[in-house]
Amino acid sequence: MKTFREEGREVPAVRDVSFEIRDKEFVAIVGPSGCGKSTILNMIGGLVAPTSGRIEIDGRAVTGVPPNVGYVFQKDTVFPWRTVARNIALGLEYRGVTGTEQERRVREGIRLVGLEGFEEAYPATLSGGMRQRVALMRTLVVDPEILLMDEPFGALDTHTKLNLHAELLALWEAKHQTVVFVTHDLSEAITLADRIVVMTRRPGRVKMLYDVALPRPRDVIKLRESEEYAREYGQIWHVLGEEFAGARL
């Protein structure tokens, strides 16, 4: 349970949210906007403390930013005064990984997200999709065990989004981090996740936990045309649709 104080009143943001995330699992949280998805992610990441209840990672209560957790924010948080390469090097720099080892891992990261040739570019010269690639790789380059993502592709056009889905899945297949991916886009959740947490509208509660029965590895384009995808979509939308319909936008 989390309440925020608003004009002197305690306003509940999320209530009775309880679920477990398994190791190496890709979980998506979907729900209408304002239902507390970011709040949940921030609690897992230790940025805000729950008003009541607790968050545990591997049996240890979260107090403050835990180690081994990466966070890709909804907002663009690429450092504008650093080049692409220097942004991706940040986490390594903080951890004291320097010299050729740092260089090697940065170069590898840049290759993995297809940003070769843009190493020395400043973020202001990049497209939104490229900036999110930098943000993603900056987080992954230090090998977090848990990856929190808050609508990371929310501001991108459909085509760029699909490309990034494919890249994210490929990267995830290689390392199998535990991922918590927040989105209000149901098709995105189905494409990526093993399991979907469906939230009610504000104050958010867990409405349904849904196992996505789609085989891996997934092809993001073919997947969308498949019958199984349509079936999963239909079933979740049946439940989620009520919440979106009732949400005041």
């Binding site: 990441g45 940025l47 930013v65 180690p67 957790v69 990466g70 966070y71 924010f73 907002k75 948080t77 450092f79 005064w81 940040l90 986490g91 720099e93 903080y94 951890r95 900056r138 987080t139 230090v142």
Partner: peptide, 23 residues
């Protein structure tokens, strides 16, 4: 948010000062 991002990348307070606040 930039400070948070740095913190999740493992920055200490002093590193946050140098790489986020000063620039």
């Amino acid at each position: 948010d930039l400070v948070h991002a740095a913190r999740f990348l493992g920055a200490s307070e002093q590193q946050i000062l140098r790489t986020v606040v000063v620039p």
